[in-house]
Design a protein around this nucleic acid. Structure first.
Lengths: 265, 265
DNA sequence: CGGATTCTTGAAGTCGCTCAACGAACGTGG
DNA sequence: CCACGTTCGTTGAGCGACTTCAAGAATCCG
């Protein structure tokens, strides 16, 4: 593979010292330390517990487990999933480096969903009680924490939006572009990346079956919008995907229908 | 109508003084003041801005509007809705007395969705900047605020769950039981209440069409599970609704299929 | 009242699901 | 390294749940 302007979206462990210093973490601008001065980052560092490695398919935490800590993804990928009584899982999100996990558990004191590593990953453990102590001393940190929680609420609203009223194609386009944007924000290629999750996981996230995901991938490939080889994905025609994702295509279809009706009338 | 053990779920304005005192508000146990001592409730009272009346169909705030305040519903009902590019709306939630509105806007500084009154309603305006100041002085308040935000994240995950992998009947049963539980928590009848929202709103919340909602209401009525007269609803057979909502019915269906297959084999 | 909105019900259509078979990739142990 | 079983992914055919379209009934509200 040739080198590109962007780093390839691999999961290579970032270079770092023997300690888990936020100051030298390449994802500090996406994570809790955003906007803190050097001294405050140091204070945050102090309370951060041990780093924790999570092997592929291992649970970082399970549903109903008591809540003690938030986790910041250091490298690797996770999924968070709720299991409903009849056995099916709803995946509520995919998390990557810099993302914060566990905020849904603060309210009830136990985790409302399970977090599972999609590949060998590592997280920073952030004991919530100690974080709360720090809030009193570092107002900036508190503010940013509120922003992060609020963004999580917004993110979920977007999921509700596509689950509630988008067609399969549109959901899938939104999904791909969302991944693309998130990799871009991390300095990776927005056009070439690996799908870290199985087709089944994508389906459980988008409210579709594994077969539908497979068909959508084939369809998008045949349309020339993407290339897909196993889990290696390339976005070839972003404008088309964007048109789909914003519902322009749907609107156009509607126009066509209206025109047809007008002609018929 | 005869008097019952429960208050009827009407929107009568709670008795109160000329000022908006949390201390005398009947919903303080559902709202921000939960767990505060008298003195701290007084401090909270001081920062709460004017009460604000919102007429039916009026916007409390619109999408993209700059964020300045959170709002606590004092009486009445609201819906929060996102509009997607192709015109359809996704309703992200229905809010009633004691619920907090606007948390999704903290992150971006502008509202990610619109809040519309479903009937003549009233809210307490809580300027967020002043609330932030208070966080430093009243740790209990901060803790509870985190719980509320976290619960909002959990609530949305539940919406994702039914949007993503429940059938129409199941979604609708979950919806009705959720309303029931929320009215119960407010001291109203869990069995008899009014649907404050239109069929269209319910549909836009559950990811279904208005026609489907209408058919579901008829079906549930004919099955003897509910009675419905216009928007006046009564739950007649809670166990059946609960079975539906937890997917037991679906599981039973699956069992039947398995049994059929076993017999056929 | 009467017009507009909301709701109900039916008939037809479609999108995504279910079921089924097969192929590819993986990884484990010989 | 290959053989093997297992998991994962693809593709097709048929079906069913929900939508779309359409018309009429009920309700709201000025």
């Amino acid at each position: 593979m040739t080198t590109t302007m962007h780093m390839v979206a691999s999961t290579a462990q970032p270079a770092m010292t023997s300690q888990n210093k936020c100051a030298v973490c390449s994802f500090k601008k996406l994570c809790l330390p955003l906007g803190l001065d050097e001294a405050d980052v140091g204070r945050l560092d102090k309370i951060i517990g041990r780093r924790r490695r999570v092997a592929r398919d291992e649970n970082l935490y399970r549903m109903d487990q008591p809540f003690t800590s938030l986790y910041a993804v250091r490298f690797g990928h996770f999924k968070t999933a709720q299991v409903n009584p009849d056995g099916k899982q709803q995946i509520t999100g995919f998390q990557m480096a810099g993302d914060l996990l566990g905020m849904d558990a603060i309210g009830a004191g136990r985790h409302a969903c399970a977090a599972v590593a999609l590949e060998d990953s590592e997280v920073c453990e952030i004991p919530f009680a100690r974080l709360q102590e720090l809030f009193g001393q570092v107002p900036q940190l508190l503010q940013h924490f509120h922003r992060i929680m609020s963004q999580e609420i917004m993110r979920e609203q977007n999921v509700m939006l596509f689950l509630g009223n988008m067609r399969a194609e549109q959901r899938f386009a939104v999904f791909l572009l969302n991944l693309s944007a998130r990799y871009a924000a991390r300095g990776y290629s927005p056009s070439n990346f690996q799908l870290r999750m199985s087709r089944e996981d994508i389906g459980d996230y988008l409210g579709l079956t594994i077969e539908s995901i497979s068909r959508l991938l084939s369809k998008f490939r045949k349309a020339g919008w993407i290339s897909i080889d196993n889990r290696e994905l390339a976005i070839l025609d972003r404008p088309s995907l964007e048109a789909l994702s914003t519902g322009v295509a749907a609107a156009q279809r509607n126009n066509v229908v209206e025109i047809r009706q007008a002609v018929a009338a």
